[in-house]
Amino acid sequence: MSLLKVKDLTVTLMTGSGPADAVRRLSFELNHGEILGIAGESGSGKTMTALSILGLLPYKGKTSGSILFDGQEIVGFKAEQFRKIRGKDVAMIFQDPMTSLHPMLTVETQLTEHLRHHRKVSKDAARAKALELLDTVKIPDPASALTAHPSQFSGGMRQRIAIAMALACDPKLLIADEPTTALDVTVQAGILQLLKDLRKRDNLSVIVITHDLGVLSSLADRLLIMYAGAEVESGITSQILTSPKHPYTQGLIEALPDSGGSGKNLIAIEGMPPELGKFPSGCAFHTRCRFAQERCKQDWPTQVHFGSQGRIYCTVNPSAHEKTGQS
């Protein structure tokens, strides 16, 4: 059985001009020990998807559809029920470690407070666990790190501390929202390796949210590409990266810089991603799609399956005609 099963998830946020759907009819599954990458431009609903699993949506945010986590239906949870799984079964790492750690509390307090709250362990036991966690995330000199404050660490080290914090209660699901975006490239690699090691060691299930497909290429088992709050394509990472089926995914991959230095020009997707509350009708991507036809403007895109895991939402399905053109 999968750990997380999301079906027809819709997240409605309150904006200045009334309610607007930030996530629309999203469905995906996550198995034990699997790393799922959710990718998309900013405003595509990635973060709201994650926050809805934790019940941390912004002021007046609403969820509908179904989120089955470990057999429990989360949609409709009361604040108190969310508090029982948050930090314990589902943990989250946020984008910017410079602002997501509390500047005035010691590392020890931040590492142990939820452990003591959820598990009711003694202060000494919590400290022992904290030392072990800091060792796991490869912080040098864990004992003195415990008494330090976050400001005494670099960004990469802070993100490691944030990961240690997330791991404190041995969660089943770890959600990492842009875990490396705010970090230097050299530091990024270390954090990604750490996430991979943790998955291997603890059989941890991880959702990594990013706008950077490069980050996901070596990390994620499966990918979910989002646009304007809805899924456009999902499947095995290597398959999507080598032969993307949806025009949007194809555009994203063409826009990736080539580390081989082949010197080819980057191809950008024309236009801008739509703003929340102004998502186009039908297939939201039709305004920027080179294959768009009249019916794309009205109809919710059709689901098309490829192989055992691949799937796109596209009415036109141009890749079927283009097979020969793609390598």
């Binding site: 941390l56 029982k84 948050r86 946020f94 997501s100 509390l105 407070e113 939820h114 944030a162 914090m165």
Partner: peptide, 22 residues
């Protein structure tokens, strides 16, 4: 509105603890 308050909430602490400590 700070990120670190969201972090504190993501840990499942009681709202009272979040307010008092964070």
């Amino acid at each position: 509105g700070n990120d670190y308050v969201r972090t504190a909430r993501s840990k499942g602490l009681s709202e009272f603890t979040v307010i008092r400590r964070h």
